[in-house]
Nucleic acid binder design. Structure first.
Lengths: 215, 215
DNA sequence: AGCTCCATCTAATCACTGTTTAGATGAGGA
DNA sequence: TCCTCATCTAAACAGTGATTAGATGGAGCT
């Protein structure tokens, strides 16, 4: 009846409007301040101003909703990582690999909930999202390429195998990010001290893979 | 009224019996074959043969139940890691650190669901369990000690800082375990190929921290 | 303009969930 | 024997994700 009577939302058009985007951005708001585990589709619907069943017209399930959120987030993560690499520039391949890791880590620590959604594969349907799989591949492929070049240029310690190195790099960065997100570092609450410690650890890790020629 | 009429359980005494242990073992059975996310207290109660409210007499919440399960699991994880270290023996401190990691990893890959429960701090109340905190400390303290000794014996590359190394080791092993548990290695389903790849990666990681003197 | 069509949304309902409460029950100690 | 008290049941509450039939109203055609 009334023209519009509530909601802190900027725009006032529902009943017919852009529900999909409204749902996505409201989901982001909720999970960022309440955590993913406290996201309820019904509460979400209420916040957006629609009936409890409305979201299911656009997303087959709660998992599908979160998968859509994850796709957006994964794009930003990939961008952050690859832009960090581009930012360092230079010829040193291992420094570029390190930069990817630093960019990845920084993003994960800055957006812990989103990182959780992306990486936990029980909240989303990762396999059926070609977008998510593609982004994942993109980072890994980039690392492969850089490491192969590093090997060819003798930057990499000769005894190291590339497949193993790629796995190690992924695990190392993922481990740091996950430990932080999973609450294994209760001593540092702000996203500042982690940045220092993880930065140093990652640098040392990468330097440990270099050929012993140079100092 | 019948004496006993159902249940695959070995013993038949409830109404008065050892409900606590029955609940714990049934929980383990369920989460191992269905996953933690599909554990329902009501289904658990039905399986054990009690009313839906009964479990709450012994565990304040579902979280408390899972915390109890996590305590048992954490004890086994710690044992596995420290026994692996004892098994290698020898003087080489870094090999012992590696053994801890290998034992930890092997246990995690063999018991993925339990590892998930232990490490995800949103399913359990880690902070309020002194048992969980103590076990966690035990492994870390052991690593600290070994690494300090390694440093004193010049086994460790001199430019490395111990705090940073401990963090790196934890993150590396945790990352490998978590990636496997989180489904980042869909190409290896059986717990065999991971064992090979992660073993090799961990070994290379540890060797990368050694002093460059020896070959 | 009117009208029809169809995506969109509502209302109601289903089968669940975790958790709380008052009260029944029955084993162990006096 | 009876009394006590931990243990368990029954019932209810408030919430969840998801499905369905039907209302609604804007877009596009005649």
């Amino acid at each position: 009846m009334g023209i519009d009577e509530s909601s802190t939302k900027p725009t006032r058009p529902y009943h017919h409007g852009n529900l999909v985007e409204a749902l996505l951005s409201a989901t982001v708001e909720i999970i960022e301040k309440q955590g993913v585990e406290r996201l309820s589709v019904r509460e979400l619907a209420k916040r957006v101003g629609v009936s409890p069943g409305a979201p299911f017209q656009h997303f087959a399930s709660k998992e599908a909703l979160l998968t859509a959120v994850a796709e957006q987030a994964m794009t930003r993560l990939t961008e952050a990582a690859l832009e960090a690499e581009a930012a360092v520039g230079g010829d040193d391949r291992l420094s570029r690999v390190e930069a990817i890791g630093q960019g990845y880590l920084k993003w994960a620590l800055t957006n812990p909930t989103h990182f959780e959604v992306i990486s936990s594969r029980k909240l989303i349907d990762f396999q059926s999202s070609s977008s998510l799989r593609a982004q994942n591949e993109a980072i890994r492929e980039r690392m492969y390429k850089l490491l192969r070049e590093a090997q060819a240029r003798k930057e990499l310690a000769p005894e190291l195998e590339i497949d193993s190195v790629v796995l190690s790099c992924r695990a190392f960065v993922y481990g740091l990010a996950r430990m932080a997100v999973d609450g294994h570092f209760p001593e540092w609450h702000p996203a500042e001290e982690p940045a220092i410690a993880t930065k140093r650890a990652l640098r040392a890790f990468i330097d440990g893979m270099r050929s012993k020629a140079e100092t």
